[in-house]
């Protein structure tokens, strides 16, 4: 435990997270976000609303690959229908997410959940882009049945995005969730 905690401390020290958070907290942009009590709840609401759009768009594509839904359409058509919603949703999530971080840098940077979430988001976005590219290059027709490997990859990606959603909520409960690993402990 102390070893891991130590490495998190080293990581935060080496990239100067605490100093950066303090500086960010003091900027006029951060002040503006904190100035009205409704700004942060509003941003969080938009962030959650967009989860519904992004997660369900991705789930629709996955359910097609699994052969559960929209089996009358080729996967390419399902991708074309939902991918624009997914990518635009992700842009909105990044915009609201970054604004929330500028508003409350200490709340985010001081948690294990936030950093783990950012890591999984990076893997998730890269993975989803690669996933989409391989789906479209498969040039599959409406009757194509995908191999088990493609189905397994799909399920793994869904689990990854669910983990991102859980970690988002866990930021507010870092000490309860991570115990001694949390810098708040």
């Amino acid at each position: 435990m102390t070893g891991v905690q130590g490495s998190i401390g080293v990581l935060q020290g080496s990239i100067g997270v605490h100093g950066f958070a303090g500086w960010l907290e003091a900027t006029s942009a951060s002040d503006a976000i904190k100035s009205a009590s409704w700004v942060i709840p509003l941003l969080q609401s938009i962030h959650i609303l967009t989860i519904g759009i992004v997660f369900i768009s991705f789930l629709m594509i996955v359910l097609r690959v699994l052969g559960v839904m929209r089996t009358d359409e080729p996967v390419d058509a399902v991708w074309t229908r939902f991918a624009p919603w997914m990518w635009s949703g992700l842009v909105v999530m990044a915009a609201t997410g970054i604004t929330l971080v500028v508003g409350e840098p200490e709340r985010e940077f001081g948690t294990v959940s936030f950093w783990l979430k950012m890591l999984l988001v990076a893997i998730g976005v890269t993975g989803t882009a690669l996933y989409g590219r391989s789906l479209r290059s498969a040039a599959a027709g409406a009757s194509t049945v995908f191999p088990v490997s493609a189905k397994a990859a799909s399920v793994l990606m869904v689990i990854l995005w669910i983990a991102v959603i859980f970690l988002g909520r866990a930021i507010a409960y870092d000490k309860q969730v991570w115990g001694a690993l949390s810098p708040h402990a």
Partner: peptide, 21 residues
Amino acid sequence: MPVVEAIHVLAGATVFGTILI
């Protein structure tokens, strides 16, 4: 609390996303 809240967010977002379609 954190687990139940996360489930509530995930399920609520799913309700919204599917109804939106």
